[in-house]
Amino acid sequence: MSVVDLLIDSLPLLLKGALMTVWISVLGVVFALLLGLLVAILALSKVRVLEWLSSLYVSFFRGTPLLVQLFIIYFGFANVIRFTPFQSIVIGLTLHFGAYISESFRGAILSISKGQWEASASLGLKQSDTFVHVILPQAWRRAIPSIWNSLIDVVKASSLASVVTVEELTSIADQISSASAVVLPILLEAALIYWALTTLLDIVQRYLERRYRYAD
C-alpha cells in the first residue's frame, strides 16, 4: 500500500478518534470555563478561607504536570472512586485548565476600574448586580485572548487521554502508525486534524472579539 493510499484509508478511523477528541475537548472547555470563573470569584471573595483554598488549588493544579494529575485521578483514586477513563481525562483537563482560566478571569476582573463599581453604586445597583451586569461582561471581553490560549491547550492536551486508555486521535494515530510502520505521515495527518479543530476555536475567538468591539 502506498503512503498516500494509507493516508486516505486511515482517515475514517482517525476521524472517529477525532470525534472522541472533540467530545473530550468540548466537555473540558465548558467545565474548565465554569470552574475557572467560580475559582476566580472565590479568590476575590475577601473570605479568607475561600481565598486560601482557591490559591492552594491554583498553585497545585497549575504547578504539577497534567500527566501526573491524570495518573493520580485514574489510578490513585481507583480504590476510592472508580472514574472511567473518559471521566478521568475530562476531570483532569477541567482541574488543570480551570486553574489557568481562573487566573485569567481574576486578572481581568481586577483590571476593571474601581470607578465602575462606584458609578454603579451611585445609580443604586446592588453589588451583585454590578458584578453580573457591569463588571463581568467587560472582564470577559478582556479575558478572551488569554482564556482562548488555555482552551486551545485543552484540545491539544486531550491527547493525554491515550495514557488512560481512551481511544482518541493520538492513540488511534499510534495504532495506525505501528500497524503500518508508516510513522511520520500518519502523525502529520493527525496533526492536521488537531490544527483544524483548534482553528475552529480561533474562529470563535475572532467572532467574539468582533462582537464585543462595540465596547471600544
Binding site: 476575590l44 475577601k46 473570605v47 476582573i109 474601581k114 446592588k126 453589588q127
Partner: peptide
C-alpha cells in the same frame, strides 16, 4: 466607597 474585589459577600445568597 466600595471595594471592587468584594464580590462573594455581595452576591446574593
Amino acid at each position: 466607597m466600595v471595594k471592587p474585589n468584594l464580590i462573594i459577600g455581595k452576591l446574593t445568597r
